[in-house]
């Protein structure tokens, strides 16, 4: 056996466990889910087959379609707001904070990122609720006469999401900004660009791949999240993951839940192709 062939066999051997694991517990279940999405329920029994009824129902039943629309709207709003808020934060930490304090500033800015996701979602009603900190403070200051309804609305869901994703995006955007040679900005200003022109023409385009990658991750995590809309949004309007969980819990309708998941996955895939030109997933 040639040296190259032996090397290759060894490499396959080293890769096999990870590949097998991914195949068995990710690819296989995923294919199973797609197959199941074409099954249907008879009573409480799953009947296998090729039935597009689940998909027909998703796109004709207003509850389901509305959940999809809600999810898309919330995710789009969250992604845009998070990028717009996180970019300046990352830039201030990268360019304004003295070098020796930067790691600390960054660590502090994303520290709550590491709290339990469930707990973090739980703590927002304490802040935004009728008796919450925000309302009580505003009442105390006499700025409002009676509590504002924020908790259990779409706004609360968005606030909760933005809080999480601002931290995530600050991390990814900071990592991008800091690896840029400072000479890019100096060269631009040396050639007559104002601070704003330097940002628009040089810094922003150079960090675009990082921003798009972060935004894509935000999109994926946001549209698939169950906890935040469930705890913060209340039951005023459903998102796709909430609808999926309802199918699993109440009626045990696995085929419909699978079809909804396939739709969710399709949306993510579309987002992937829309942004793939700038995506750098291997450099997250």
């Amino acid at each position: 056996m040639s040296l190259a062939a032996r090397d290759r066999r060894l490499a396959w051997g080293l890769m096999a466990p990870a590949l097998l694991w991914t195949a068995a517990f990710f690819v296989l279940p995923f294919l199973g889910m797609i197959a199941l999405s074409f099954a249907h329920m008879e009573g409480r029994q799953v009947v296998q087959g090729f039935d597009t009824g689940n998909y027909a129902r998703i796109f004709t039943d207003w509850t389901m379609l509305k959940a999809l629309i809600n999810s898309l709207e919330i995710t789009a709003v969250v992604t845009v707001i998070s990028v717009v808020l996180a970019y300046p934060l990352a830039a201030i930490i990268a360019f304004r904070v003295p070098a020796r304090w930067q790691r600390l500033a960054l660590l502090m800015a994303v520290l709550p990122f590491w709290t339990s996701y469930v707990v973090r979602s739980y703590s927002w009603p304490l802040v935004l609720g009728q008796n919450g900190v925000v309302n009580q403070t505003l009442l105390g200051l006499g700025l409002i006469a009676e509590p504002v309804q924020i908790a259990s609305t779409r706004a609360a869901t968005v606030v909760g999401f933005v809080h999480f994703f601002v931290m995530l995006l600050t991390l990814t955007i900071y990592a991008n900004l800091i690896q840029l040679s400072p000479n890019y900005a100096r060269a631009a200003q040396d050639l007559g660009a104002s601070r704003w022109q330097t940002f628009v023409h040089v810094i922003l385009p150079l960090t675009l791949p990082g921003v798009v990658t972060g935004a894509f991750l935000t999109f994926v995590l946001c549209i698939g999240d169950y906890i935040t809309p469930q705890i913060l949004g209340g039951n005023t309007e459903l998102t796709l993951p909430q609808l999926i969980m309802l199918q699993l819990g109440r009626s045990g309708n696995f085929p419909l839940a699978s079809a909804l998941s396939v739709v969710l996955m399709a949306v993510v895939t579309l987002a992937y192709f829309a942004s793939s030109r700038w995506l750098r997933l291997d450099r997250v």
Binding site: S181, N183, Y184, R186, A187, A188, D190, L191, G192, A193, S194, Q197, H201, V202, P205, L206
Partner: peptide, 27 residues
């Protein structure tokens, strides 16, 4: 004054023409 940097700091997302014309664009 203008500077030629050690790492050149050419803008990788612009063509050579846009790189060289950058200063004029700013003006």
């Amino acid at each position: 004054t203008t500077t030629v940097f050690q790492d050149y700091a050419l803008f990788p997302h612009m063509s050579l023409r846009d790189n060289v014309g950058f200063g004029l664009r700013m003006r």
